[in-house]
Simulated assay, not measured.
Amino acid sequence: MNKIFSNAWRFFVLVFVAVWAAACVNKDVDLPKSSLRTDKTQIAAPAMESDFTVALKANCNWQVVIEDEDAQWLSISPKTGLGNADI
């Protein structure tokens, strides 16, 4: 009988600790808002071949999208990333 009481007590303590731990979890965590900035707002490119670098400051995933599929004169690297980068 004493062993049954001891096992029941352990079970009660384990259930209590599990419920207490679950109740302490804050599910409404305020995450920072996504932020993305560049050091340039526009580039005036000459007619001859040139390289330009744009510094990107970000705290999120980002992707460069070229809307004109025929823009073979333009190459961008990297096209995706997470956080800060030089493009």
Rank of each mutant, 00 (worst) to 15 (best):
M1L: 07
M1I: 01
M1D: 00
F5Q: 11
N7E: 13
N7A: 14
N7F: 08
N7K: 08
N7H: 07
N7C: 05
A8M: 11
A8V: 05
A8P: 00
W9P: 00
W9F: 09
F11R: 10
V13G: 01
L14D: 07
L14E: 05
L14H: 05
L14R: 08
V15G: 10
F16K: 00
V17K: 02
A18M: 12
A18N: 08
A21W: 04
A22F: 11
A22G: 11
A23F: 05
A23Y: 03
A23W: 07
C24K: 08
V25P: 01
K27F: 14
K27Q: 12
D28M: 05
V29F: 04
V29N: 02
V29D: 00
D30S: 09
D30V: 13
D30I: 12
D30C: 02
L31K: 13
L31F: 15
P32V: 01
P32C: 01
K33R: 06
K33H: 02
S34T: 06
R37H: 06
R37L: 06
R37V: 09
T38S: 09
T38K: 01
D39M: 01
T41E: 14
Q42G: 06
Q42S: 13
Q42H: 07
I43V: 11
I43K: 04
A44G: 04
A45W: 06
A45P: 02
P46R: 07
P46V: 05
A47N: 03
A47H: 10
A47K: 10
A47R: 09
M48Q: 14
M48S: 12
E49K: 14
E49F: 05
E49D: 10
S50D: 08
D51A: 12
F52C: 03
F52T: 07
V54C: 08
V54I: 15
V54S: 06
A55T: 13
A55C: 03
A55E: 14
A55G: 08
L56E: 01
L56A: 04
L56C: 03
K57D: 12
K57L: 09
K57E: 14
K57I: 09
C60M: 11
C60I: 13
C60Y: 08
C60S: 15
C60V: 15
N61T: 06
W62Y: 06
Q63L: 13
Q63M: 10
Q63D: 10
Q63A: 13
V64K: 02
V65N: 15
I66C: 01
I66P: 00
I66L: 12
I66D: 05
E67H: 07
E67G: 04
E67C: 00
D68C: 06
D68S: 12
D68Q: 11
D68R: 13
E69D: 11
E69M: 06
E69W: 00
E69R: 12
E69S: 15
D70V: 02
D70H: 07
A71T: 01
Q72G: 15
Q72Y: 14
Q72H: 15
Q72I: 10
W73K: 09
W73M: 03
W73E: 09
W73F: 10
W73H: 09
L74S: 04
S75Y: 04
I76P: 05
S77Q: 12
S77E: 12
K79D: 11
K79Y: 03
T80Q: 14
G81V: 12
G81C: 12
L82R: 14
G83V: 14
G83F: 12
N84Q: 10
A85Y: 06
A85D: 15
D86R: 15
D86T: 13
D86A: 15
I87G: 11
I87P: 00
I87Q: 00
I87E: 02
